Simulated assay, not measured.
Amino acid sequence: MRTVTSRDGTAIAYSTSGTGPAVILVDGALCHRAFGPSGPLAEQLKTAFTVYTYDRRGRGESGNTPPYAVEREVEDLEALVEEAGGGVSVYGTSSGAGLALEAAARIPGIARLAVYEPPFIVDDSRPPVPADHAARIEAAVAAGRRGEAVKLFMRQVGAPAVMVAVMSVFPVWSKLKAVAHTLPYDLTIMAGGQRGHALPAEKFASIKAPALAAVGGESPQWMQNSVRAVAAALPDARLRVLPGQNHMVKPRPLAPVLTEFFREKS
């Protein structure tokens, strides 16, 4: 484990594996280097790339300097881009894709961008996120009810009610609660993009890096619509549908798609 120092002094923990051009993986909600999809995906990519996995602020071994702002997370990623030497490829999943999009609009060192299912709600194909959702989760965290915060989040993202009801008896529960305080961060990143409105035409206009917007073929229609809207909004993007996949995309079918895209010459 190594660290870089973000602009506000926060230490951001990261690891690298493999050799080749740099690729940085950006996790979604509740995940970090020791828990989530980045580790298995890095294993698939390391034969072709130097893969950077990192703990977003407040998670794992990274620091957590208040107050939170999306700009601070962009600066964390910028510090990693600089550590990697610039000209890097970035892949983000779920709300981590939302963060990667924010970063690509502000960090010139991001040369190629891939996102998987950023959870924008761009029409009426599913109900919007309630206006008080973030406040309810923040209140639960502030009161020390981390389990309640996780359950509120899981219900909103569409986890089956039975799974939400029984998840507290599984070993993964303690890992989820350990980073529950960062759920408001992800909700802040996605704020304004989950109200059922079309993406503003100018939202991603400044992203010049070639981009790949990917979605699982088995993902719900609202997510299909979100990814198609992102692909249409980016100045230089293509859409890729991964047959048989959903929001919990498997690393084996995903890795070749990313490898092909990241290896292309601009």
Results as ranks from 00 to 15, higher is better:
residue 6 S to D: 13
residue 9 G to H: 05
residue 10 T to K: 10
residue 11 A to C: 08
residue 13 A to Y: 13
residue 17 S to P: 00
residue 21 P to V: 04
residue 31 C to F: 11
residue 32 H to V: 09
residue 36 G to H: 11
residue 36 G to D: 11
residue 43 E to T: 10
residue 43 E to N: 10
residue 49 F to A: 09
residue 50 T to D: 13
residue 51 V to N: 10
residue 54 Y to C: 00
residue 62 S to K: 04
residue 64 N to W: 14
residue 66 P to Y: 10
residue 68 Y to Q: 06
residue 69 A to D: 08
residue 70 V to P: 15
residue 74 V to A: 15
residue 75 E to H: 02
residue 77 L to M: 14
residue 89 S to I: 07
residue 89 S to G: 07
residue 92 G to A: 13
residue 96 G to H: 07
residue 101 L to W: 02
residue 102 E to W: 14
residue 103 A to W: 08
residue 106 R to I: 13
residue 106 R to M: 14
residue 108 P to H: 06
residue 110 I to A: 08
residue 115 V to N: 02
residue 117 E to V: 03
residue 118 P to Y: 01
residue 123 D to K: 02
residue 125 S to H: 09
residue 127 P to G: 02
residue 128 P to N: 00
residue 132 D to R: 07
residue 133 H to M: 05
residue 135 A to P: 14
residue 136 R to Q: 14
residue 136 R to C: 01
residue 137 I to Q: 01
residue 141 V to H: 01
residue 141 V to Y: 02
residue 143 A to N: 00
residue 145 R to E: 15
residue 146 R to Y: 10
residue 147 G to R: 05
residue 149 A to Q: 01
residue 155 R to V: 00
residue 157 V to N: 01
residue 159 A to L: 13
residue 162 V to H: 09
residue 162 V to R: 08
residue 167 M to F: 07
residue 170 F to N: 04
residue 171 P to C: 04
residue 171 P to H: 04
residue 175 K to L: 07
residue 178 A to H: 01
residue 182 T to A: 06
residue 188 T to M: 11
residue 189 I to M: 13
residue 191 A to M: 07
residue 194 Q to V: 12
residue 195 R to Q: 14
residue 196 G to E: 07
residue 199 L to D: 11
residue 200 P to S: 09
residue 203 K to G: 01
residue 206 S to K: 09
residue 207 I to G: 10
residue 207 I to K: 06
residue 208 K to C: 10
residue 211 A to G: 10
residue 214 A to N: 00
residue 216 G to D: 03
residue 217 G to K: 08
residue 223 M to V: 09
residue 225 N to P: 00
residue 226 S to M: 06
residue 227 V to P: 01
residue 229 A to G: 04
residue 233 A to T: 08
residue 235 P to A: 05
residue 236 D to K: 04
residue 237 A to C: 02
residue 238 R to L: 00
residue 239 L to Y: 03
residue 239 L to A: 00
residue 243 P to C: 11
residue 248 M to H: 15
residue 249 V to L: 07
residue 249 V to C: 09
residue 259 T to H: 09
residue 259 T to E: 14
residue 260 E to W: 04
residue 262 F to Q: 14
residue 263 R to I: 05
